[in-house]
Design a protein around this nucleic acid. Structure first.
Lengths: 260, 260
DNA sequence: ATTCTTTACTTGTAAATACAAGTTAAATAA
DNA sequence: TTATTTAACTTGTATTTACAAGTAAAGAAT
């Protein structure tokens, strides 16, 4: 009996520990991930310039105290995301990607274009509602039951409206999200900072469609003018949670840029 | 003197050996690559069905006589290309992607859609010419000097014209390519089988534009109807050689599908 | 001086090993 | 029976070691 109580107490404290360590203490980031973030930042900050050679794998090992497989894992992620191009016998060449609108990159619009130029205007504030009847993607039962958080935004690039963005998020573990400010902060940043949700990838369908009257009004276009229509489904670190966007984009002046 | 002659003869045979082994004998394919191709084929052939679990990493090790790092390298490529989704503690789930037109995938249109449905019609046969004055991408000096091979094709999906594809290839080490048959075989397959050129990735710009009269005629659309315009630059295993495409796409019935 | 070879350095592939961490189902306790 | 724990899986991270293969520059032979 005594043992059981002790066990219970232990279990109790153990779960407290788990809870605390998952919520407050920094989740231990893998080494290769840390190196990936460091190098990516250096590339974006122009510490390593276009066409530059990155330090060799062995040098990176020494610099950051890792072994070669770990370093290679970081480099392979960078190569996958298009930040470097590897050449056997030569080295890793910095590629310094999207000067154009990189909406196809994984981090969402804001981080790709750079916060300075991009302004956001809320058309419909986040509201909790039922999913639309003929939603563009198939939903899980859990998503269907949870309802969705809906919002509409228009994004301006140098004061010209470029994106009309309709977002849907399943209402799973997102307390008080409808009362947050979305004007200036990126949706993705709020999700990451306040809810520990990271977008990991996803799929999309792309079409070319004529602007409806609503779209032409919001994006200041002539009616029937061609706009790009993207339907995106984004996967997150929470395997049950997906983000959905229907984006209409004026590509007259800017193109959508991406790697494959 | 005798030694030198002997050396010369040795060198001669050595280069012959290199030549032969690189041209005829199967280039040794890495094990992880072999496994990648096998699993990919099985997924595409529905041996492993959607939502199925792949054999575990340890089982694959035994099945194919490899070690876990090698197997993991293959699986990580598959995950990167969207054929599986890995879940820690669970396994690798088959994702079975593009039911729609997977032109955004790396292997080119034909392999993604499946050869059976896709037909190709040559509009302009491959010709050697100078690069256009205002080409859509910046060219290297070598490319500029080599001139380009130009061709135009229209691709039909279930007998409906969907793609109008303008291709440019730098004329670097591609003997007799203009005299080949492109009607049925994929351009990518010819490049791979006859010239050992593999497309490894690339970048693209996407726009929504109104159909010009030429495009509307070729794709059987109304004039000014919105079409998708892709400008692609594809990197190959030859670091000096790039393939370029300007693709106009009717997305009324089909969407362009991709992962990110 | 020029050409060729060697050498040193780069990334690529592969094995063997160890432990961490997430998932699932069987075994165990109440 | 029901709830909990345990054990047996799964993938994730990391080290160590070895050699293959491509690149480029220093060095040697002509």
């Amino acid at each position: 009996m005594y043992l059981q109580v002790k066990n219970l107490i232990f279990t109790f404290y153990f779960y407290i520990f788990l809870f605390v360590s998952s919520m407050v203490i920094t989740k231990t980031i893998p080494q290769y991930r840390r190196l990936y973030e460091i190098l990516k930042k250096h590339i974006l900050d122009n510490v390593y310039k276009e066409e530059d050679l990155l330090p060799s794998e062995n040098e990176l090992c020494q610099l950051y105290g890792m072994t070669r497989p770990t370093v290679r894992q970081a480099l392979s992620s960078l190569a996958n995301d298009g930040y470097i191009i590897k050449h056997q016998g030569k080295g890793s060449i910095v590629h310094h990607l999207p000067k154009e609108i990189g909406i196809l990159s994984v981090s969402g619009t804001t981080s790709a274009v750079g916060d300075r130029k991009l302004k956001t205007k809320i058309i419909v504030k986040p509201v909790l509602m039922k999913w639309p009847g003929d939603f563009m993607f198939a939903l899980t039962k859990l998503e269907e039951e949870s309802g969705c958080i809906y919002m509409e935004r228009v994004r301006f690039l140098e004061d010209v409206p470029i994106f009309y963005d309709i977002s849907y998020i399943a209402n799973i573990n997102l307390p008080r999200i409808t009362s947050r400010q979305f004007e200036n902060k990126s949706l993705f940043r709020i999700l990451r900072d306040s809810y520990w949700i990271e977008v990991k990838g996803g799929e999309q369908r792309i079409k070319s469609v004529p602007a409806t009257s609503r779209i032409s009004r919001l994006l200041k276009l002539k009616k029937e003018q061609p706009v790009l229509h993207l339907e995106r489904r984004m996967e997150t670190n929470n395997p049950d949670l997906f983000l959905y966007s229907s984006i209409f984009c004026n590509t007259e002046k800017y193109s959508i840029f991406g790697r494959f």
